[in-house]
């Protein structure tokens, strides 16, 4: 049963990657990456129950923390370098 749940989360991660590849703006990509990151934390928590190893919960917390800091850092970078951000979104 946990397998079905983790497959559903994996499916959503694939959809998020599809959105990240499609763009069209840089913010769509960051949104997709954020979605991917929170789903990683969720997936790790589910895996902890799937293979019955509670240590994975600590990893889930670490991923949740890193995701937030990472997204804020990326946004800060984009705001500091608007020209580079535009380059990245024109690349599509």
């Amino acid at each position: 049963m946990y397998i079905v749940l983790s497959l559903a989360i994996l499916m959503t991660m694939v959809l998020a990657i599809a959105r990240a590849l499609r763009g069209p703006t840089i913010y769509d990509r960051v949104l997709a990456v954020n979605l991917f990151g929170t789903k990683t934390a969720l997936l790790l928590a589910v895996i902890a129950f799937l293979i019955d190893r509670p240590d994975f919960l600590d990893l889930a917390l670490a991923y949740a923390l890193i995701n937030l800091v990472g997204i804020l850092a990326v946004l800060q970078f984009i705001q500091m370098n608007p020209s580079k951000a535009n380059e990245a979104s024109d690349h599509d």
Binding site: T25, Y27, V30, L31, N34, T38, A41, A45, P54, L57, D58, A60, L61, A64, L65, L68, I71, L72, L75, I78, Q79, P82, A85
Partner: peptide
């Protein structure tokens, strides 16, 4: 531990969305 992780995710998700939306608006 699960409850703490859930609380953390729920407290930070709106902050991240706001930062993202506001960055897009400012651009």
């Amino acid at each position: 531990k699960l409850a703490v992780i859930m609380l953390f995710l729920l407290l930070t998700a709106p902050t991240a969305s706001y930062a993202l939306a506001n960055a897009a608006l400012q651009s």
